[in-house]
């Protein structure tokens, strides 16, 4: 997976999503999920990627149960859970095995997406850990002032506003500073040089051919 260009991985993400939509056989969907799991192992992803996949699997089980409660059809419930698993897992796989600046370079250089939009994608990923850490800090600070997570769901949701409000306000303030920082560092200049090398190689063409073949196979048979 590391030797494959980011563009191939972007195509792989779209193709797997397409397969997940098109397939209705639990066995075929299990194979798609299994292949992705195998690619994770081959890509030597970090432990946190497996953890994220485990949470995803838990959510798939929940979806299976929910589907089964409303329509007591085991096969349909299994397909629903597996479809979601296959679709979401591919994003985890691609993000875990690709440097984000390479993805940005591929989006800008090969997919012709304006740099500003590609950068927005990168930045959103950059701020996820900060956002989580800030949320924890605010929860601790509000807990010192009597914030409670106890009570019924309505009460808890109302209480949760005490976390959300400062979090959103801080995020807005942070985005303003960030925009200023980017301006001060020449963002928006026409001379930009995106350093990453993301050209396709023979293994990319092989992988892309494989994806086309499988897709044709699914739709033709």
């Amino acid at each position: 997976m590391f030797k494959v260009a980011p563009l191939t991985k972007i195509v792989f993400t779209m193709v797997v999503s397409l397969w997940a939509v098109a397939l209705f056989s639990p066995l075929a969907l299990s194979v798609v999920v299994g292949v992705q799991l195998l690619l994770m192992v081959l890509g030597r992803v970090e432990a946190k990627t497996y953890k994220a996949t485990a949470y995803l699997a838990l959510f798939a089980v929940f979806l299976f149960l929910l589907q089964y409660v409303f329509v007591p059809d085991t096969r349909l419930a299994l397909v629903t859970g597996l479809k979601m698993m296959a679709m979401a897992m591919v994003f985890i796989l691609v993000l875990a095995t690709t440097r984000v600046q390479d993805l940005t370079a591929a989006l800008v250089g090969q997919c012709r997406i304006p740099y500003e939009y590609a950068f927005m994608f990168t930045t959103a990923l950059r701020f996820v850990p900060d956002f989580l850490s800030e949320s924890r800090t605010i929860q601790e600070a509000q807990a010192c002032r009597g914030y409670s997570t106890k009570g019924n769901i309505v009460k808890r949701m109302i209480n949760f506003l005490a976390i959300v409000k400062p979090l959103v306000l801080r995020a807005i303030s942070r985005s303003e500073t960030m925009a200023l920082s980017m301006e001060l560092r020449g963002f928006g200049s026409q001379k930009r040089n995106i350093g990453s090398q993301v050209a396709l190689g023979w293994h990319d063409y092989t992988a892309l051919s494989g994806m086309v073949t499988v897709t044709l196979g699914i739709f033709l048979y």
Partner: peptide, 18 residues
Amino acid sequence: SQLVTLTVEEEVAFGLEN
């Protein structure tokens, strides 16, 4: 809030790439 990229080297390179 001044740090805008994911990794240390990207951060230092950001202004230069621009």
